[in-house]
Design a protein around this nucleic acid. Structure first.
Lengths: 219, 219
DNA sequence: TCCGTTTTGTTGAAATTTCAACATACTCTG
DNA sequence: CAGAGTATGTTGAAATTTCAACAAAACGGA
């Protein structure tokens, strides 16, 4: 596990916990890790939520497929990020989303009960862990609200521009790479792929953005 | 405050806390309460988030107005429910939403820091409070995902039916009242009001639902 | 480098939404 | 109970999205 210490250090769950304490706590938390190949389903819709997942390497996508077969992408998570924490906290018996590996990824699982209930040893930093998990849940709430802000726009153009503006803000730069290809971006914006491509072309002609594959620049 | 004890008892923040302990803690938490008339803005978009709000009486709506002037309704909260908890936990300097009183409503405010950091007296149930807040944040995350599931549908009909199905599930009944009028429902579903009215008429003709004002019955 | 596969772009027709304008129904208050 | 104001329903035209089908470009492995 020690080889992933630099990843765990930037994981929001271990914010303000010293390296030594992270190592100690990993024992108490009875973590398990697993490696998943590209496109592998890490957690599937409908299964019970018991574990919080941490992306140790690679990246994953949170997706859902509706009644009509439309895939919806809820988000994309990279090294150090958490998933399934809300469902695990609530002990949901049926997850409303699936988690898919974007690429070969190593994932750490923590039983949520080991975080919520202090262990017998009384780890000094357990309290910090609970505090960190709370901040993370608050952040996720805000992230979902941003996604709602994006897809509540009425046209593909407005959805795209709202999303790209968020990306630019997050990167403090007008140019950036997005973690989606066209189909995935369409699934995130909840629009038709071909319509999205057409709209990107228009925006390019209008001189509003430059774009090459997943690289974008707002002008 | 004692007159609102029965409301606070069903507030998720005080789950599993005895009446006496609720009373004791209210002192430590340095709560403030205020009354707002119908349509009054309780918290406005752009202002800093410091307090968690609890609806003691009446009801409130979480709304946002975008760049183009479209109002979006994020949710509707009744007696005992919390708002602004995620923003307060994160100490956001600029709230992304406004909170408006639906009707004359009494609101209790709690400084989030008084919940996150245990007071000197070491209230026995402070830990429970933190635990409860965490569960609430997890629940809110799930609620927003449901809203995303609703508005990610491509047509007004599908959005409406997805929403109504959630309502039916929540009430364990095919007939129920929704907390919105037509315009508000349109703002929640992120669609045009007149289009929504037309779609409701169609569904009625198709024998899929009955509806009178904010009362709906799925057939 | 070549070839098969995947991704992205383009197009036009059909379906749907938005918008504006107006008709009707309901509610509240004096 | 009358009248004003608000909420809901209806309609048609314009704008937009979706869908299907195909073209072009990029990618990856042999």
């Amino acid at each position: 596990m020690r080889k992933f210490l630099n990843v765990l250090k930037k994981c929001p769950l271990f914010f303000d916990v010293t390296d030594d304490n992270i190592i100690t706590m990993l024992g108490c938390l009875k973590t398990k890790t697993d490696i998943f190949d590209k496109k592998y389903t890490i957690l599937s819709e409908g299964s019970p939520a018991r574990y919080i997942g941490i992306v140790l390497s690679g990246s994953v996508q949170i997706t859902r497929t509706d009644y009509y077969g439309n895939r919806s992408i809820l988000g994309n998570l990279c090294e150090g990020e958490l998933f399934s924490e809300a469902f695990a906290c609530m002990q949901m018996t049926s997850m409303p989303v699936s988690v898919i590996a974007n690429e070969r990824s190593e994932i750490m699982f923590i039983d949520c009960n080991h975080i919520l209930h202090t262990c017998q040893k009384g780890c000094p930093h357990h309290q910090q862990l609970i505090y960190n998990l709370m901040k993370d849940l608050a952040l996720k709430t805000v992230m979902f609200q941003q996604k709602i802000e994006v897809i509540s726009q009425r046209t593909t153009r407005e959805k795209l521009l709202t999303y790209l503006t968020f990306c630019a803000k997050k990167n403090n730069q007008n140019s950036f790479k997005i973690p989606f290809n066209r189909q995935e971006l369409a699934d995130y914006l909840e629009v038709d792929r071909s319509g999205l491509s057409a709209e990107i072309s228009k925006l390019r002609k209008d001189g509003i953005l430059e774009c090459k594959r997943n690289y974008f620049k707002l002008l």
